[in-house]
């Protein structure tokens, strides 16, 4: 039952990704951009231009390009079917390997930000839900609206100004480690894990120190919608008939609280999934403020360079991760709430 459900969802996901690939492929080629002249410069000779176009494969008909990208002509170049995302036009290395170095940075950043946001949001949201209509609740509510509607890159800059320039407690926003530090051998790509594998606790704490500001910035923004969600779901649970009845039948307070908490958790899963997916690309701005070198910055670089294979690769990978996250959270939801049938 469960396995069938997962298989079905995966299948639908693959179809969705396939449609997405096609859509993105045509979309970027329909837009009036000229990647060749971006690469060779506007002043190149017609011969140089043609040569570059040939090198990029842009001299082939559109559908042939798609075929190659999908991996249906493996004799020319490997494509998706062979597990290849193509070769970056800007750097010449494979898109897959580039994403593999950039993606862990982003995943590490937003996962930590989510954890921190939850640690803040759950008690704060509960505080609001347990005192509906009182000053504490109003404060919680206004905070959640405020935090949820802020320009995160600006807050990142503000934090840099206050904590780096004025107070000097934060490092300069120049990457995952200080520019003077020699990074550890990348094994997983996650800096925090790689430093530990390399057995260099000093670098681990340095990385943590550098992650502090971006994580706080993102967690601040994330705390808005999460607090709002915790407060709303908890309020709804506390006002539900079955919590009222649990009180009427004389269950101890602790038990009633557990009833409400479990009821509030289920519906939160969907929103968490959406937020996580959103953050995968939404972290772009914070990454660039702190020069972290995540997938978002890779996307910016690729977009500004008209690097089509890289753009396609980034969109594909981010969407695929979002779909997997949605699936995982749906499974957790179903485990919490027996009413959700596969």
């Amino acid at each position: 039952m469960l396995l069938r459900y997962i298989t079905r969802r995966m299948l639908i996901g693959v179809i969705q990704l396939f449609c997405l690939v096609i859509a993105v492929f045509f979309l970027i080629r329909l837009l009036p951009a000229d990647p060749v002249s971006r690469l060779v410069g506007l002043n190149s000779s017609p011969e140089g231009y043609e040569q570059a176009a040939r090198q990029l494969g842009l001299d082939r008909p559109l559908f042939e390009q798609l075929w190659i990208y999908l991996g249906l002509s493996p004799d020319i170049a490997p494509g998706l079917l062979q597990g290849s995302l193509g070769v970056s036009w800007a750097s010449g290395s494979t898109v897959g390997s580039e994403i593999a170095t950039f993606l862990p940075v982003t995943l590490q950043l937003i996962t930590l930000a989510f954890i921190l946001a939850f640690i803040i949001s759950i008690p704060v949201g509960m505080l609001g839900a347990l005192n509906p209509g009182k000053a504490a609740d109003k404060g919680v509510f206004v905070y959640s609206l405020f935090a949820g509607s802020q320009p995160e890159f600006w807050w990142g800059l503000l934090f840099v100004y206050v904590f780096y320039f004025q107070l000097g407690v934060a490092p300069a926003p120049l990457g995952q480690l200080s520019p003077m530090t020699f990074p550890p051998e990348p094994v997983t790509g996650f800096m925090l894990i790689d430093t530990l594998i390399a057995g260099e606790p000093a670098k681990f704490f340095e990385a943590l120190h550098h992650l502090m500001m971006p994580v706080i910035t993102l967690a601040f923004i994330l705390s808005g919608p999460i607090i709002k969600m915790v407060r709303q779901n908890m309020l709804r649970a506390l006002q539900s008939d079955f919590v009222l009845y649990a009180n009427l039948i004389g269950l101890p307070r602790k038990r009633v609280a557990r009833y409400a908490l479990r009821a509030a958790m289920g519906p939160s899963m969907t929103l968490i999934g959406i937020l996580y997916g959103f953050m995968l690309s939404g972290a772009v701005l914070v990454e660039s403020v702190f020069s972290l070198g995540g997938i978002g910055q890779y996307a910016i670089r690729s977009v500004l360079a008209f690097d089509y294979p890289a753009i396609q690769g980034v969109v594909l990978v981010i969407t695929a991760i979002s779909l997997v996250v949605y699936l995982l959270l749906d499974l957790i939801h179903a485990a919490i709430d027996p009413r959700i049938a596969y």
Partner: peptide, 21 residues
């Protein structure tokens, strides 16, 4: 519409604007 909605919003907006001008 579902496929369009599964696009990563910010990156898609960036792609569209940068490539279209």
């Amino acid at each position: 519409s579902d496929v369009l909605q599964s696009f990563p919003v910010f990156i898609m907006a960036m792609v569209l604007v940068a490539l279209a001008g």
